[in-house]
Nucleic acid binder design. Structure first.
Length: 425
RNA sequence: GUGGAUGUAGCUCAGCUGGUUAGAGUACCAGAUUGUGGCUCUGGGAGUCGCGGGUUCGAGUCCCGUCAUCCACCCCA
């Protein structure tokens, strides 16, 4: 019996992991710049949290959750998204009692039981930010700005936010009623999916990729006339802020988002060239979430990006982060008798902060040098019985092919100096 | 959950209408070079042909199932 990673999951091996580390570095940096603090929440929560938070009639809750009963027969679910757990932590630790807004970010794996395809996995990684406790539209703009700057910092500088407003529990039902009224006589002309959407979430019809549906949906018109004053003013203020901050965006009435908790501002970012699953980030305002999770009425706004797709998008755009992890020095031990002294030199180099390695499989000298080349070593230190007897080691610059002798007593520090000088440190 | 395509050394792939011991390139290891990498040459190890069943004298090749990957739908990140 041979094992393989479960469907929709994968191993990230050396060679690939460096890209992830690069992206994660940018995340920490951008969040620090914007004043968001990292939070880590459990990978699983009580099932009820997601049902309440995300919404009972969403696809995630209806068919995509990894739900299991623990030994005490409590229903648990591997987190399918990051906002609900952060909201739970916000309430549980009474962060609403602290200075507002509370600005948090997270990075970690999420789980959804879906059919995998390019850019879609059952375990995938998300980076997200959440800001609780402020209704200020400038905070919506700050989050969109953060997302934008994040993508740009990774080289995706053509990225543009698509934004929309979906109103609030006061005005949205009026618009939904309007949609149903306009479409009521033409239900049979809509696709099967849209006929279901008509009952459950009529705004989704506006998002349908079917040409006939989108043609009919275009007659529905914008949400604008139905927005309450508060929502209308809020959206105007978000747009003004983005303009002032020089954050590029387009207004896209088709952005409606998948979770029930969104209110007012919604937005997303899409990438080109990565297939059908092209959303690389999205978010919005969720003024009712904290309350529906059992906390005091607290507004919030957030954003999440899918790292797996982000990596795909970078690849599709030919963005290759320059990750240099060259080995500083490979110590070549041509003779068995010199291996232990070579190990000591390796150890000294490491303690001086220089990455160092040696042969552990009994290669010939020629092969050890070849191996050093493979490891992209900056230099090699040859330490055989001959050198040992003379109290020296041969240092070889692997880029230039130059070689010189240094006394063994100061070998480590001299090599360290050399490596630092060619590394530009 | 639905539909379609694919699955042969670590990797990229050959293998014609079923016919003997399944090949190449690359990578790996070794030698040429008994103490000097990148180039070249020579040799070597390596494959339950995704897995399980079936048809057949005989299956990598045909059929069924299953698992996985990819694409589309759905939905999303």
């Amino acid at each position: 019996m041979r094992y393989s990673a479960p469907r929709g999951t994968r191993d990230i091996l050396p060679g690939e992991i460096e890209k992830w580390q690069h992206v994660e570095g940018r995340i920490h940096r951008i969040c620090e710049l914007y004043g968001y603090k990292e939070i880590r929440t459990p990978m699983f929560e009580q099932t009820e949290l997601f049902v309440r938070g995300i919404g009972e009639v969403t696809d995630i809750v209806e068919k995509e959750m990894y739900t299991f009963a623990d030994k005490a027969n409590r229903s648990m679910t591997l987190r399918p998204e990051g906002t609900a757990p952060v909201a739970r932590a916000f309430i549980e630790h009474k962060l609403y009692a602290e200075a507002q807004p509370v600005k948090l970010y997270y990075i970690g794996p999420m789980f959804r039981y879906e059919r995998p395809q390019a850019g879609r996995y059952r375990q995938f990684s998300q980076f997200g930010v959440e800001a609780f406790g402020s209704m200020d539209p400038m905070l919506d703009a700050e989050i969109i700005s953060l997302a934008h700057d994040f993508y740009v910092s990774l080289g995706l500088d053509q990225i543009k936010a698509r934004i929309n407003t979906i109103g609030c529990p006061e005005c949205r039902p009026r618009y939904q009623g309007h949609i149903k009224q306009v479409l009521s006589g033409r239900l049979d002309q809509l696709c099967r999916n849209c006929q279901q959407r008509y009952e459950r979430n009529p705004m989704r019809i506006l998002d349908c990729k079917n040409e006939r549906c989108s043609g009919i949906a275009s007659e529905v018109g914008s949400i604008d006339p139905f927005l309450c004053d508060e929502c209308s003013e809020h959206f105007e203020a978000v747009k003004t802020s983005l303009d002032e901050l020089s954050i590029p965006y387009v207004i896209d009435p088709a952005i409606v988002r998948g979770f029930d908790y969104y209110t007012k501002t919604v937005f997303e970012f899409v990438a080109e060239g990565i297939g059908a699953q092209d959303a690389i980030g999205g978010g919005g305002r969720y003024d009712g979430l904290i309350e529906s999770c059992g906390g005091p009425a607290t507004p919030g706004v957030g954003f999440a990006a899918g790292l797996d797709r982000l990596l795909l998008a970078m690849e599709a755009n030919g963005i290759e982060p320059a990750v240099s992890n060259r080995l500083g020095c490979f110590v070549v031990a041509p003779d068995k008798g010199s291996r232990i002294r070579s190990a000591c030199l390796v150890s000294s180099l490491r303690r001086l902060g220089v990455s160092a390695d040696m042969d552990y499989v009994g290669r010939s000298m020629s092969r050890q040098l070849k191996h050093a080349s493979r490891l992209d070593a900056r230099c090699v230190a040859i330490l055989g019985e001959d050198e040992l007897a003379r109290g020296v080691t041969q240092v070889r610059d692997m880029d230039r092919g130059e070689q010189w002798e240094v006394p063994l007593s100061e070998a480590a520090s001299r090599i360290a100096d050399f490596v630092r000088s060619v590394s530009g440190e």
